[in-house]
Amino acid sequence: MGTSLRKGELVTALTGMAVWLAIVLFRGFSLEWLALPLAAVAVSTLTGGPVFIPGLMILLCATASFTGAATAALAGVLSAFSSRRISGRIAGWLAVSAWVLANPSAQALPLVAACAVAALFNGKGTRIVLAALCAVLLPALGYLPVPANEAPTPARCFIEEGHAWWKLPPVTLGSGGAVLAPPVPEPFTMTLELQCGGVRDSLPVVTVMAGDVALSLPSGSHTLRLDLSPTDSVFILPLRELRPFTHPVAHVWAEAEW
């Protein structure tokens, strides 16, 4: 039957565990990191040289807590659907489950359920059909994992004499928006240029909130000049949820004078 782990597989599994232990040592215990050793065991049962790469990627991604754990969960899904051994498929399912337990999300539950079902089927054809159905239906019905932490990210500010500007990544579905802290402890005028798009209707894409002002902006280019007090932060928050065939995004340039 050949169910025992081969030497190479054992090495991959053991290294995954070693990385996990190292992370526990350096960062402390966290539930979501349980996904890592489970995913390493699951990936180790996949055969073929190129398949080693996902395993390596899991280890590489052990560098950042959220990214690393999510990548481990992703490898868990891969194993749950594609491993020839039931032990590998169940380990993969457990990896996804550990991650979802640590980052509770109702939208991720259908995926966990699909992994559990796939883990129980020995037939390759059945698993392929199940994977294809998941790949189409889950995005189409909006059942996709979403980030647990949706707080807006502070933007990096640069200050010169009487002038400041911010470096902002685009506000997309995957981000919780951006917050711009007041540059100086005195009244200032902020100029915001926003290019919103990626949608097929005229409904708002983002909201800009600052002091007493709240503006919802639809698709298109917008220039805002806001007179703000020293305590006013500016929030740029995405308004759209995932819908197929929409890619909401806002590119933002911000500067201030006082």
Binding site: A70, L74, A135, P139
Partner: peptide, 17 residues
Amino acid sequence: ALFSLFSLFWRVIPWGW
């Protein structure tokens, strides 16, 4: 298969897409 998985998870991994 790998592409589909990353597409499913892209919002939870900073370099997902």
